[in-house]
Design a protein around this nucleic acid. Structure first.
Length: 488
RNA sequence: GGCCCGUUGGUCAAGUGGUUAAGACUCCGCCCUCUCACGGCGGCUUCAGGAGUUCGAAUCUCCUACGGGUCACCA
């Protein structure tokens, strides 16, 4: 990879809806590469297709990129030296360059109607033509004929004139040199009948004018890349370096699509994923770090990234792995305060009580949270003791059952009543003194306590932690209730 | 169908002619333990197939198979 010039990459989405996770990953790699080499990351909106334009989609792009921390150095909202950064505002430019190509003999006007093109296509299919390309009907038009059609106001497109012989080679950093026969290349449309440029043309013009040095894009553009090279050559411009990244798949046969309900960025935040973890995971899809660690913040990704770690094969999306990465971030990377801030809204979904020790609760919840959405169910027993069966007191391993539980709770009640300073340490001290005095195993005493305070088989923390969270009054009250329940 | 690209365990993947073929996730056991989780230990499972080149191939070459991409006045 050539980094002798200032590196400039771009993310060039079309405002056609939500942010696909594969698209976001392309943006991520473009961002990382720019930042890795202290370069610029540019945002350009490709809105040349008026049919597919969706209102609000541009805002969605800004919003998602910002949420992910992919800060752009130049873009439609903040401007920059090579704007405008919205293609629909650059119309004159494209037309002008296309005309230039006509004059230099690299392009020509085509007046073919949609009907003729459809018919041509139908015939080619019928005859099983292997290389179905435009038949260059309008290339043979005389000057006079062209002028006549122009005068009549017949709509036309501008097509690129491909060489009929030889080969074209382009270079991709990942794939190396790829060579194709020029005869196989179609005379692709550069300017549409409505005057708008096609993606294929606008891209080349903008990437050049904006000084893009490295084009990071989806693998679906790999086969059209030779045509771009020919365009660059026709203009006498330097060709940028390409990095085509493979798709993210649902399984070996299918790309991740909206049908699966988990193709868009928003789908994952809705499911309780933490944004830096999403970024971390998608970076790992199709890229492998040098070392063994795979938990990274965005800044660390920039530091660790190396182009040689990129994969040429499609990667299958694995929600289980993403969940594990998410858990790592939540449990290990976040401080108590950071986690508290993010988790509180989820805690409050099912736990409204204010008279509990929230910090102890947060500490209990954090190491057990894989997804934020796990939290409400985890803490719902705090507001209200759930209905539960006394069979919960039975544990083979702890050697407990409803009878021993009643015994244990009766012993523990006065001990807890006597605790003055209500915190985990003091409660622990008092309870363990009692355990020692009675001469029983920890579990024999503590397991029943946990059940009595929660009514659940699984809880965030053991009996002592729960007691601390609930406070002295509530703890004693719940133990009394349990004793009554077990006495029946 | 033509052209282009790819193929290491269930998944992500390291590996660039000589390795007991890393690591992570998943799953299963065991340990730790006041449940679960965490943590620790261990296990299952991999070079798509076939020819070559070579003393030696997951690594190089060719063929086959399979998969993906592309063949729009969409991007």
């Amino acid at each position: 990879m050539d980094t002798s010039k200032r590196v400039r990459t771009r993310f060039a989405p079309s405002p056609t809806g939500f942010m696909h996770i594969g698209n976001l990953r392309t943006a991520l790699f473009a961002y990382i590469i720019a930042k890795k080499y202290d370069g610029d990351f540019i945002l350009r909106i490709e809105d040349t297709d008026r049919e597919r334009y969706v209102d609000g989609a541009v805002d969605k792009i800004y919003e998602t990129l910002r949420a992910c921390g992919l800060k752009w150095d130049e873009g439609p909202d903040i401007g920059g030296p090579v704007g405008p950064y919205i293609q629909s505002e650059r119309m004159g430019t494209y037309k002008q360059y296309a005309e230039q190509l006509i004059e230099s003999g690299h392009a020509y006007r085509c007046f073919c109607t949609k009907e003729r093109l459809d018919e041509l296509h139908r015939q080619q299919q019928e005859q099983k033509v292997s290389n179905m390309v435009y038949d260059r009907h309008c290339l043979g038009l005389s000057e006079e004929e062209q002028q006549r059609l122009l005068d009549e106001g017949v709509p036309y497109v501008i097509r690129q004139k491909m060489p009929t012989e030889g080969t074209t080679t382009f270079k991709d950093i990942l794939y190396g040199d790829i060579t194709v026969e020029n005869a196989l290349l179609e005379d692709q449309i550069l300017i549409k009948a409505d005057g708008m440029p096609t993606y294929n043309f606008a891209n080349v013009i903008d990437d050049h004018l904006m000084g893009i040095t490295h084009v990071v894009r989806g693998n679906e553009y790999l086969s059209s890349a030779p045509k771009y090279n020919l365009l660059y050559q026709a203009f006498g411009w330097d060709v940028p370096e390409y990095i085509h990244v493979e798709h993210i798949m649902r399984d070996a046969q299918h790309k991740l699509s909206k049908r699966d309900g988990d193709a868009y960025f928003g789908d994952f935040t809705d499911k309780g994923f933490y944004i830096p973890a999403i970024i971390n995971y998608i970076a790992l899809l199709g890229w492998a770090p040098k070392g063994e660690n795979e938990i990274f913040s965005l800044e660390e990704l920039v530091r660790e990234f190396d182009i040689s770690g990129l994969s040429k094969a499609p990667a299958i999306f694995d929600i289980a792995k993403m969940t594990a990465i998410n858990a790592e971030h939540l449990q290990k990377r976040l401080t108590h305060d950071e986690f508290k801030k993010l988790a509180l809204p989820y805690i409050r979904q099912s736990c409204k009580r204010e008279d509990i020790d929230i910090d102890v609760l947060v500490d209990a919840v954090q190491p057990r949270t894989k997804l934020f959405t796990d939290i409400p169910e985890m803490v719902d027993f705090i507001d209200k003791m759930p209905e539960y069966s006394t069979e919960l007191y039975t544990s083979k391993k702890m050697k407990t059952n409803p009878q021993t539980a009643l015994e244990a709770l009766k012993l523990i009640l006065p001990v807890l009543e006597a605790v003055d300073e209500w915190n985990t340490e003091k409660i622990h001290e008092a309870v363990f003194a009692e355990i020692e005095r009675v001469g029983v195993k920890n579990g024999w005493m503590l397991y029943p306590l946990r059940i009595a305070l929660s009514g659940k088989a699984l809880t965030p923390g053991g009996g002592i932690e729960l007691a601390d969270i609930l406070g002295k009054e509530e703890t004693l009250s719940r133990i009394n209730d349990a004793i009554n329940k077990l006495s029946e």
